[in-house]
């Protein structure tokens, strides 16, 4: 595991780079090593009599036993074993880094929005249209994608500072990546940091980034059932943007049902219907952001 952040497999790269990172010719940077070429010291000393097959089975009470380890409390060749109670949260490391990000953003009275959606729901297009309408407000953007820096380039072309985080095989941003990315962005005191998460309706749900609010974007072409199929991400959202509303005449999407489904997993969820194409809903979205900025200033 990456001991810096626990963000796991894959090769995270952050544009720009700083001291402990390796800079590459194309300007992208390896944040830290994510590969582990450990020797396998236990390969030969496995206790005799082990069941060496990979297996798992369901025990009583929904317990799944997996792996090939011994079940007893005395192992031939290893002597007496000890059972240690731990009670430790696996996400604690990420959550601690997220808390640090949150404190840092609060000190700068900055609103941070984590934008999550399936791939292609319209996050970057919406950001570009949003930034165009936020002249005078300090803004910065963190772009998360497995590969390419095209989204960050689209943001920079719109005139805002942006840093691309490539997660490699990783399927979500985590708090460490966002902390690194913040190091590479200008401070936006009193302004807004937009974080475009990796397009994925599942994995980003589990990872607190230290954001002020989570915005889930569902386009009208995706169908009404997404909140019920991917409840985790809707359940943790603070705002639902129903995007590409200009396409409604062309698709059979019941937006009322989509919204009702979202509120089943997140009662009272705020909703804005939005189109980056026609501008529908952008005024409400900008007003929502503005209200968030005022809250951030009150807290800071």
């Amino acid at each position: 595991m990456c001991t810096t952040c626990g963000c796991g497999a894959g090769e995270t790269r952050i544009e720009g780079g700083h001291a402990h990172m390796h800079r590459h010719a194309d300007g992208t940077v390896h944040a830290h090593h994510h590969h582990h070429d450990h020797p396998h010291p236990h390969e030969d000393d496995r206790a005799p009599g082990h069941d060496d097959h990979d297996h798992h089975h369901h025990g009583p009470g929904g317990t799944i036993h997996y792996g090939r380890g011994p079940a007893g409390n005395s192992v031939p060749g290893l002597g007496q074993t000890r059972l240690v109670a731990i009670e430790a949260d696996v996400l604690a490391r990420n959550d601690a880094l997220a808390a640090a990000n949150r404190a840092r953003l609060a000190r700068a009275r900055t609103l941070a929005l984590n934008l999550v959606s399936s791939p292609g729901a319209g996050k970057t297009t919406l950001l570009v249209e949003t930034l165009r309408r936020m002249a005078g407000v300090p803004v910065a953007v963190i772009e998360g994608d497995q590969e390419t820096s095209t989204d960050a380039e689209r943001i920079r072309a719109a005139g805002a500072p942006a840093v691309q985080v490539n997660t490699g095989k990783g399927c979500h941003l985590d708090a460490a990546m966002v902390g690194h990315a913040l190091d590479h962005l200008p401070a936006v005191d009193g302004g807004v940091v937009f974080i475009e998460n990796v397009g994925n309706l599942v994995c980003p749900a589990a990872f607190d980034l230290g954001e002020s609010a989570r915005v889930v974007i569902a386009s009208v072409t995706e169908g009404e059932d997404k909140p019920l199929k991917y409840p985790g991400i809707f359940a943790t959202a603070d705002l639902l943007l129903v995007s590409k509303s200009d396409l409604l005449p062309h698709v059979d999407c019941d937006t009322e049902l989509l919204i009702a489904n979202a509120r089943r997993v997140r009662p009272g969820l705020a909703v804005i219907r939005i189109s980056a194409r026609t501008g529908e809903g952008l005024e409400d979205w900008l007003a929502w952001i503005d209200a968030g900025r005022r809250m951030a200033r009150l807290r800071g």
């Binding site: 595991m1 582990h36 450990h38 020797p39 396998h40 236990h42 496995r46 082990h50 990979d54 798992h56 025990g59 009470g61 929904g62 317990t63 799944i64 036993h65 997996y66 792996g67 090939r68 380890g69 011994p70 079940a71």
Partner: peptide, 22 residues
């Protein structure tokens, strides 16, 4: 469960039995 066995490889935890309780 599928991931844990591979994740443990090369660590003190390699070969351990994971009892996952819902």
């Amino acid at each position: 469960a599928f991931c844990l066995d591979g994740a443990a490889r090369g660590t003190l935890v390699e070969g351990a039995r994971f009892a996952i309780e819902e």
